[in-house]
């Protein structure tokens, strides 16, 4: 655990000493809850349509697949046409594209970023390495099955997937969202203990709260 996360005594500007336990004091430790859809079917349908037509991708290139995300946003492929755009902060994004292999070190950051996103949120796994390890099936530092650690809505296979494949994948994701089948965030909340156990099995140095709001 890092030094700045340990319990310590801090002297405030007014000279009063108080104890700080960063993990408890700086974070909210409430667990996620399953969020019910709207009461009216037609309202939920409208929202699902809007969600499908406005996909905001978190700007986090976790692996080599990130290199094909840039052509996706530029003249040749121009995913903006389909309402897809980048957001630099996880709070505002609702799609997490895991662009390729995940090393254990990145997985920790990915989980943290994912949990900061707001429900409903979606995960797309890119490339063979998120599916079954791909090229790195024998690597000591990359995970092999993304869906053990995060609820994945869709996989796009290939090494690496072409931008056309990505576009096709996003259109497929839109269909899932519009049909109300992309409920990854609720699935994560419902099976929270299972996901957390899997994550902690890989990440030994768990120096963050169980759920990062």
């Amino acid at each position: 655990m890092k030094a700045e996360l340990e319990k310590r005594l801090v002297t405030g500007p007014d000279g009063v000493e108080f104890e700080v336990d960063p993990l408890r004091d700086y974070y909210c430790d409430a667990l996620p809850e399953v969020q019910r859809p709207a009461y009216l079917r037609i309202v939920e349908d409208l929202f699902n349509w809007a969600r499908a037509e406005s996909i905001w991708i978190l700007g986090f290139g976790t692996g080599c697949g990130a290199i094909e995300m840039r052509p996706l946003m530029t003249p040749r492929f121009d995913a903006y046409r389909y309402g897809i755009q980048w957001r630099p902060t996880p709070r505002q994004a609702n799609l997490f594209v895991i662009s390729g292999y995940l090393s254990v070190k990145t997985l920790k950051r990915v989980i943290r970023s994912y949990e900061q996103m707001q429900n409903p949120k979606y995960v797309v796994g890119l490339g063979s390495c998120t599916l079954n390890g791909g090229m790195y099936f024998d690597s000591y530092n990359t995970i092999k099955r993304l869906d053990q650690y995060l609820p994945v809505d869709l996989y796009i296979t290939g090494c690496m997937p072409r931008p056309e494949a990505l576009l096709a994948g996003f259109l497929e994701l839109k269909k899932l969202i519009r049909a109300g089948k992309a409920e990854g965030a609720n699935q994560y909340a419902a099976n929270f203990a299972w996901y957390k156990a899997n994550q902690k099995q890989v990440i030994h140095d768990w120096d963050m709260p169980d759920y990062n709001w």
Partner: peptide, 14 residues
């Protein structure tokens, strides 16, 4: 650094 470490040098040895 190390977020993209896959251990190529090790993988190539086998």
């Amino acid at each position: 650094v190390g977020f993209l470490h896959r251990g190529f040098e090790k993988l190539m040895e086998r």
